[in-house]
Amino acid sequence: MRVLFRWFSRAYGAGPHQLLLVLGAFALTAYVVVLLGPDSGLTRMVVWFLAAVVLHDLLLFPVYAGADRLLRAGARRGRTVVGWINHVRMPVLGSALLLLVFLPGIIRQGEFTYYAATGQTQQPFLGRWLLLTAGMFALSASWYLVRVVRSRYLDVGRDVN
């Protein structure tokens, strides 16, 4: 029995419990798809499900990783006594996160259902997002200034390169 177990694990690449678990998960997923069979939205749901993964892995990730690589290259070239790279990263990431999550309001998507539900329009959101972005950049820049001043007069907070 033990020999069989070891032979299986070696050939399969994991213990039998792993196989049971993944097969269970696939069975549940297949059951969900069967239940959704009569639903006219099934194809769209599958497309959105897969698109979520593909857009994250093959679009969002490469875009932000690529942008960060450019930023790092810039930081290496324009090296200063007090490093500035994270003072750019933070407001950019903060602003991008808000754009990602609150995109419908910012670009005024779903205006009709929005109005039906609330009796209001999405008019203020773009301006608010821009102001929040400006605020985050201003905060980060002032923090950077504080660090520069402190490093100049107190000789602290200096990056060790």
Partner: peptide
């Protein structure tokens, strides 16, 4: 939560 039903299927079901 933002009343954007661009996906075109039932939110509850999905």
């Amino acid at each position: 939560i933002q009343y954007d039903y661009v996906f075109g299927f039932s939110f509850y079901t999905a």
